[in-house]
Design a protein around this nucleic acid. Structure first.
Lengths: 343, 343
DNA sequence: CTGAAAGCGCTAACAA
DNA sequence: TTGTTAGCGCTTTCAG
């Protein structure tokens, strides 16, 4: 038997074979569990493998099988509050299938992004997931010559036959608005973020749609677009309070705005939810729980989005075909800021 | 020339060789840039490689070189607010060296953790980083028979000859307290989280040390330990206000507590920073900026911690030896809640 | 200066 | 039932 050139750092199948006194291929078959063989041989091999702490080298396996059981996740924007639950849930689904995840971050740097993609391809990943903090469209990624599945999560490709998974922003806004309507509220305002965000436009559309269906008027002075901040929430709430006829409910584009609005009202002596009910968006626990009263909010179910992304990728990797934009439902988490039915 | 058995998904060195009309080994040498060869041959090869979009298969390279240029990062607790900047910075450092990062999450599930480690070993990672949300001690991980570098970041192994990288909590607390002292504050309170956390104990120690050095008394009623929440911050601040002799400054164990305290005081008509100055901990932007007045806070420099972790791992991977607990300095970010010098 | 051949660790087809 | 052999894609001697 020849000696290996490199010092090896872990036991190979050859060592197991030697210890068990069988051939390499027998070891392979024994451990893979397949094929027919004498049980005692199998046991002997298993025992040898165990005492050596043998783990097959997946690099070698991958090389042979032409699949690495590995995927890459590429964040266009830095990994943030929204990406985390998604990534975490996806990781769980894929890890259960023995698939490893390469994490790449290319914060708004196309050059870095290219490098990362190139690395991922060199590492022969079986799939790529693209995420962004903001759910706006971005150019599809370039897979120079290779044909592996790519999906966009919380992010959308300009290339329409790719699969995108997103939260249903419009639906979430409908949920929030209908909730307020069902409580008997009639003048519902909407304070939201910058109109540059597709999410802002979609949520606004949902809000409008719900009001229309309920045949409610939508006075333009009740719609306020600004920044994604508490400061803007306070400012906008003040504007609403200064109106000749203030609203009796506010649907906010995110939880920070909602918190600002609630703070403003409490300080102005306006009771939430009695005088004005408030619903936020994101269901960001630390924010929602810190509001006084605790904030009713729309949850985008990011974990579910992540799990779904994991499943979709698995399907694509095993040859399935999926494409188009899928929007997953949000849900309403009721706390105290939307309060009981108004009399 | 024999045909490959499997359908290949990307071009191999063999294809490049065929196109360039040279041997495989020539291609290898030409692309690696080493060795002596006729420049025109090298160019010919490069061109062929380019037109085919050839990327060497790193699985094969790794197999040969016995190193995968890949590491694993294992989060004991879920990836959260603290892990993110660390991971992001580390990723940047390592990605620049062409090293890929496998992300594994094993939220407080030892079984999952074992599986992940086993997978990482099978993937022949060149190193492992262990992180946790809380900087408390944990058992070292088991590398059944393999000898690869492991470091603990924002987390500490019970095994003392491993390397741990942590923020200097005690130093951060000293920084905060001395800042308040330098502003002329004399009765400095400390509201903090549960004493179960090592960070709480260390920050308390730093606070005490700074007071002792300044020969300030430390009345026990000025130390309040509770939850990591705004609610606790408000509650504790109220207790302090109710004291016969309230403090003229509060050092808070995190920014949420600080925010609660500030809110409480504003509502009680106590001026921050005029009557009572406040310093927080974590420098969590969204929190610190949303406080009124904006919150002075201690920054743990998590990005720097992550970069340092990346560098340390690179050293270990190239044979260096590092061990023990290293604590990296925090810094003070001054905003308005600590205000100007008191007269 | 270039090519042939061996081998990294593993699997799978084929022989014995 | 078990062993022999070829080959995954690449690098690296060693000959030519």
């Amino acid at each position: 038997m020849k000696m290996p050139r490199h010092r090896r750092h872990s036991n190979t199948i050859r060592d197991v074979a030697a210890l068990a006194g069988v051939s390499i291929s027998t070891v392979s078959k024994a451990l893979s569990g397949g094929g027919r063989m004498r049980p005692e041989t199998r046991d002997k091999v298993r025992e040898a493998a165990n005492t050596l702490g043998f783990r097959p080298n997946s690099l070698a396996q991958s090389l042979h099988q032409n699949r690495s059981r590995t995927i890459g996740i590429l964040s266009t924007d830095r990994f943030g509050r929204f990406s985390f639950p998604i990534v975490e849930a996806m990781e769980e689904v894929l890890a259960n299938e023995g698939i490893g995840i390469f994490m790449c971050n290319a914060t708004d740097d196309p050059e870095r992004e290219k490098q990362h993609i190139s690395q991922l391809l060199a590492k022969r990943v079986d799939g790529i997931v693209v995420t962004a903090r903001r759910a706006d469209r971005r150019p599809g990624i370039e897979l120079i010559g290779r044909d592996i599945p790519v999906i966009y999560v919380f992010s959308q490709s300009e290339n329409n036959n790719a699969l995108s998974l997103l939260p249903d922003d419009e639906g979430g806004a409908v949920l929030a608005t209908e909730h307020l309507l069902s409580l008997g509220r009639r003048r519902i305002a909407h304070i939201t973020g910058p109109e540059g965000f597709e999410a802002v436009r979609l949520r606004h559309r949902g809000y409008v749609r719900a009001l229309q269906q309920a045949r409610m008027p939508q006075p333009p002075e009740l719609y306020l677009s600004g920044a994604w901040s508490e400061t803007w929430g306070r400012e906008a709430a003040q504007k609403l309070l200064d109106l000749a006829e203030p609203p009796d409910a506010i649907f906010c584009g995110n939880d920070q705005i909602a918190r600002g609005a609630i703070d403003c009202m409490r300080e102005a002596g306006v009771s939430v939810p009695h005088d004005i009910a408030v619903v936020g968006y994101d269901n960001w626990e630390v924010m929602a729980e810190a509001c006084r009263p605790r904030l009713t909010s729309i949850d985008m179910n990011l974990m579910e989005l992540g799990r779904e992304a994991g499943r979709a990728l698995l399907q694509l990797m095993s040859g399935g075909k999926l494409s188009g934009v899928r929007r997953l439902p949000c849900s309403l988490v009721i706390r105290h800021s939307s309060g009981p039915v108004k009399h």
